[in-house]
Every structure is written in structure tokens, then in C-alpha cells.
Amino acid sequence: LCRISMSMTEIRSGFSAIKANIQARDPIRTLSILSYPHSLHKVKSSDRCCITHQLFNFYVDKVFKHCKTEDSYVNRKISSIANSFLSVKRKLRQCHEQNKCMCGQEPTEKFKQILANYEGLNVTSAAIKSLGELDILLDWMEKS
């Protein structure tokens, strides 16, 4: 079992501070990066670690760097979230290296769909939309 400690409260408070600002920059109501076509809530519990690991890599490697805004307060909060994600990403990688967070076919397919959704938009729109959906990820991670 992969057990990692992370300060969800800090990430949540960082996101709450910029949620309205970031989501207002995403005009596309009809598409979701994380929830289309299937909600994260449909992921089996045995696949949760794999999807979490892949999503933290996704946000660190692809998303945050394309979210720079003209608002320095928003940029500081994005930096705070990005550095927290980097810290968690490292712990998840350790789990993966200890074969505690393995990926089967289903979660791999699900993550491919997320990447396809992401690549279906121009990079800035996709990154801002993904950042605006952070609460979808956090809500799912906290669901028992």
C-alpha cells in the first residue's frame, strides 16, 4: 500500500484563493479535461494510486508552466500549489519504484483519455482548464 502524507489543507487553500479567477479564464463549459467522458469517480479503488501518480506528473510536467498570468498574486499561489505538487510527486514516484503504485490497463486508458482531452485544446487553454479543475482532483482524492 502506498501511504504518503501531504498537506491537502494547504493545497486546497491555495486553490480556493484563485479558483474564481482561474475558472473565469476558461470559457469552455462543454468539455472537461479530468471528467470527460468518464468521471474520476468511476475509477476503481485499486487503480487510485496509479491515476493519482500519473495526474501529479501531468500537472507538474505539463500544466503549471503554462498557467502564468498577469496577476502576480495568482502566480504566487500557482507557484505554491506547483511546489506542493512537486513534493507529492516525488513521494508517489518512490512508491512506484517500490512497486506499490502499479498501473494496469484500465487506469492507463483513462489517463490516455485525459491527455487526449488536454491535447485537444491549445496549450494555454488546456493548462488553465486543467488548473481550474484542481478541485475535481482534490475532491476525488479525498473521497474515502
Binding site: 463549459r29 462543454t30 468539455l31 472537461s32 471528467s35 470527460y36
Partner: peptide, 8 residues
């Protein structure tokens, strides 16, 4: 109203 991520 609309469900976020759904088209209509």
C-alpha cells in the same frame, strides 16, 4: 443550467 464538461 448545465453540468460542467457536458455539452448542453
Amino acid at each position: 443550467y448545465s453540468v460542467y464538461g457536458v455539452g448542453k
